[in-house]
Write a protein that binds this DNA or RNA. Structure first.
Lengths: 213, 213
DNA sequence: AATACTATTGAGCAGATGATCTTTAAAGGC
DNA sequence: GCCTTTAAAGATCATCTGCTCAATAGTATT
């Protein structure tokens, strides 16, 4: 040690921010917030020392708030997954006083604005690859609460010779989500008019089942 | 040491396979093959000792064939990425002596059988998240060599009031690829008739541009 | 201003991990 | 059967990483 760096990362940077005490709840949240950014960038195997450095705090402090790194990751999951699926969507998606087309556009506009976000996209993918149960539960929930009702709505309007299947809804969904995957996982450029692409995907879906404006 | 385990993993298991010499080329390939399986399962941060254990070989042997772990990962990328995009597809996709529908179905049947494979899917995703340049080059290549020609083919047949965009092709592609993502990244059950879903996705795409059989 | 409380630091441990280097022994040639 | 070559093992290093715990110091209360 003593090689030009103090043990307190806050004292190393340009601005010499001295030790600062925060209310535990606030500090905890600060750690989780930064952990979301950090893990989204480098993956869940990112190490706690680097995370502490970014926080301007010692590594051991992290373990004052989380017993293990696994616990911290759980908190990150929680923070990121929570509120991503608004509970009033099932209702709005099945409100037949509006055209299905409008409901779909409203939903996917809102939903895409929530999920086409680097942190969410990447942590979702990292947790999926890691086999996190929260990930599986999320998708199950999405299927039951959003896509299944959507299938019912489609069935109610589809022309009689073409029976909608759950896989068709997944295909609509996947095609739209893939926009975000390309952008945030593969780091390809954002489409110039993502909103437009979503509407086209929906149009394509509805037209396939003979549901016209 | 000496806690019941020899340093040679091959001697620990039930079958006492003794030290076995292989021609370097063969051993090297054996290591890469196992590394593909291993990294696909646990991610690129999987450690070399566990990999060696699975090979029934000492960890240091791996470094006889690869100077660094990074080098090994490059070899894994190479092995997995190579041959995934057959060079004759551009030609076949633009062969107007067959209906576009048939060409699309032929392409995506073949392509999906190549990529709907756990190892490819997961290593592709891991490498994408890691920002591997090979990943980016692959997608660029796919865009230029497959999707762009496909856009041209669609344009040639689309009804005049609906101009196909590159994003439409990406949407078709994404919707299909998402089948594999669901299955291999999120570990959701395989659709009962994936071939069928691909054909429906293509049908949907063509119909949107008024291209009928 | 002194005191008590506790958020934060500083130091370090134990095990894991990539990598190196010397020693051993399998296999082909004589 | 001995010799040479070299694939593979064995031992070990330096560093990294999650985690622990005693010492320190910021803040609120009196």
């Amino acid at each position: 040690m003593m090689d030009g760096h103090s043990n307190n990362p806050a004292l190393d940077g340009e601005e010499g921010v001295a030790r600062k005490r925060l209310p535990p709840a606030e500090r905890r949240q600060q750690i989780v917030d930064e952990a979301v950014r950090f893990f989204a960038e480098v993956g869940l195997e990112g190490n706690t020392r680097e995370l502490a450095r970014r926080l301007g705090v010692t590594q051991s402090l992290i373990f004052n708030y989380f017993g293990t790194k696994e616990e911290l990751i759980e908190a990150v999951y929680e923070k990121v997954y929570i509120g991503r699926l608004s509970p009033d969507w099932p209702e709005r998606l099945t409100d037949r006083s509006h055209p299905l087309r409008d409901r779909l556009i409203a939903f996917y506009s809102e939903y895409s604005s929530l999920i086409f976000e680097r942190e969410w996209m990447r942590i979702f993918m990292f947790s999926g690859l890691a086999g996190a149960s929260l990930n599986q539960r999320y998708l199950e929930h999405l299927g039951n609460v959003i896509l299944l009702p959507l299938l019912a709505e489609t069935k109610a309007l589809a022309r009689s010779d073409r029976a909608p299947k759950m896989e068709d809804v997944w295909n609509l969904h996947g095609g739209i989500v893939y926009i975000g995957i390309r952008q945030h996982i593969y780091r390809m450029p954002e489409p110039s008019t993502p909103q437009d692409e979503i509407e086209r995907a929906i149009e394509k879906y509805l037209q396939y089942f003979g549901i016209e404006p």
